[in-house]
């Protein structure tokens, strides 16, 4: 079977898988961003219990493996009465894991805003919330965009693990095709190239574009 014939026969399944992978990526990214902002801010809170909670969350999710977390959420959580359907369990696990890494980016970016900005906001008598939303966070946001680009690629790669709980993503489809055809190089090679294209030609250009737009908006371009 030539590679073209292979593609003609299995192309639609690669497309289906890619769509599921894209959906997992987008949903996991949304969750990761929400968690990252929440946990990152909580890490900077003045309240000790709040800070402590965020620290424990971050250390647990960064200290263990995504695969362990995924299995735990899918196989163990139902014992606690929380049953997630496999598609949901997939992006929840990936989002919670990468959110912990993102929290450290948020924290670092907020701390990197010069002290003078905090003082100037204080001098204008802004409330702490106003100060964070109007002054500090917009500047921090710009600073953390480049590392978020890398994190989103890690997130995309992380979604490949959801195939292990049978979510029919790109990884899952390529494994299925491999086990019926034994054309491993074609099956896995095609999937590798698709993941590469998604990272290098979708996520990276999107993040660069976002960096440019935000920089221009904030008068730094």
């Amino acid at each position: 079977m030539s590679y073209l014939e292979f593609l003609a026969e299995f192309g639609p399944r690669f497309v289906d898988g890619s769509v599921v992978t894209a959906m997992q990526t987008v949903l996991a990214a949304a969750l990761a961003i929400a968690i990252a902002v929440a946990m990152g801010l909580m890490r900077l809170s003045r309240s000790v219990p709040v800070r402590w909670f965020a620290t424990v969350y971050i250390e647990i999710f960064r200290g263990t493996s995504l695969l362990v977390q995924l299995y735990w959420i899918f196989f163990v959580l139902p014992l606690f009465g929380i049953s997630l359907e496999k598609f949901t369990a997939g992006f929840v696990a990936v989002g919670m894991n990468l959110g912990a890494y993102g929290a450290e980016l948020v924290r670092g970016a907020i701390l990197s805003v010069p002290k003078g900005q905090w003082e100037a906001a204080l001098a204008l008598n802004m409330s702490p919330a106003k100060r964070m939303i109007r002054v500090i966070f917009p500047q921090a946001f710009l600073n953390m965009l480049p590392p978020w680009g890398n994190l989103l690629i890690e997130l995309l790669k992380g979604t490949a693990l959801v195939s292990l709980i049978s979510v029919a993503d790109l990884m899952f489809e390529s494994k299925q095709i491999n086990s019926t055809t034994f054309l491993s190089a074609q099956a896995f090679g095609t999937a590798l190239v698709i993941y590469y294209v998604m990272s290098r030609f979708v996520i990276t250009p999107f993040m660069r574009w976002l960096e440019r737009v935000m920089a221009r908006k904030m008068g730094r371009a």
Partner: peptide, 14 residues
């Protein structure tokens, strides 16, 4: 930019 788990499969099966 590609998943490790896929690379593991690739090396093992190809």
């Amino acid at each position: 930019s590609t998943p490790l788990v896929l690379q593991i499969f690739f090396v093992f099966y190809v």
